[in-house]
Simulated assay, not measured.
Amino acid sequence: MALLRRPRPVAPPGTFDRIDDVRSAIRTLYTRLPVKAFGTLELPPPPGRDPLVEAQHTAAAMTRHLGIGDTRVIVAFSPLGGHVGEVELGPGPEYFVTLSPHYQDDPRDIPAVLAHEVMHIFLHRHGLSQAEIFVDTATLYLGIGRPMLAAYRVDVLQGRYTRRRTTSRVGYLSPPEMGYVLAKRALAFGEEVRPFTGAADGAYRLGHERALSDYARLPLGRRVTARCPTCSSLFRCQT
Rank of each mutant, 00 (worst) to 15 (best):
P7I: 05
H126I: 15
G90W: 00
L234I: 04
E192Y: 01
I68Y: 01
S78Q: 08
R18W: 04
A61P: 05
A216R: 07
R27L: 12
P176I: 02
T28H: 04
Y180R: 11
L4P: 00
R169H: 05
G69W: 01
P111I: 08
R8L: 06
R194H: 09
A203N: 04
L212K: 07
P147H: 07
V113T: 13
L43R: 08
A11E: 13
H57I: 12
P47N: 04
T137Q: 07
T197G: 11
M119I: 07
P176G: 03
E117S: 12
Y172V: 10
L220S: 02
T63E: 12
L80A: 03
D50A: 03
R185M: 13
G143M: 05
V87W: 00
V193T: 15
R8Y: 00
P44V: 02
G190Q: 02
H120R: 09
F77Y: 05
S168K: 04
Y161I: 08
Q158A: 14
S129D: 12
R146H: 09
R222E: 12
T15N: 06
I110W: 03
A188V: 07
A37K: 12
R153N: 09
G82D: 15
A150C: 04
A200E: 08
G221Q: 10
T15F: 02
P51E: 12
Y215I: 09
G127I: 13
E191I: 01
I68P: 11
I68G: 08
H57K: 01
R194I: 11
P229F: 00
S213I: 12
T98E: 15
T230K: 01
H102G: 08
A151E: 12
G145N: 11
E191A: 02
G82L: 11
A2V: 09
P93C: 14
R223P: 01
F196E: 15
P111Q: 15
G207R: 05
H120Y: 01
A226F: 02
S24T: 13
V135C: 10
D155S: 14
S233Q: 13
E88W: 00
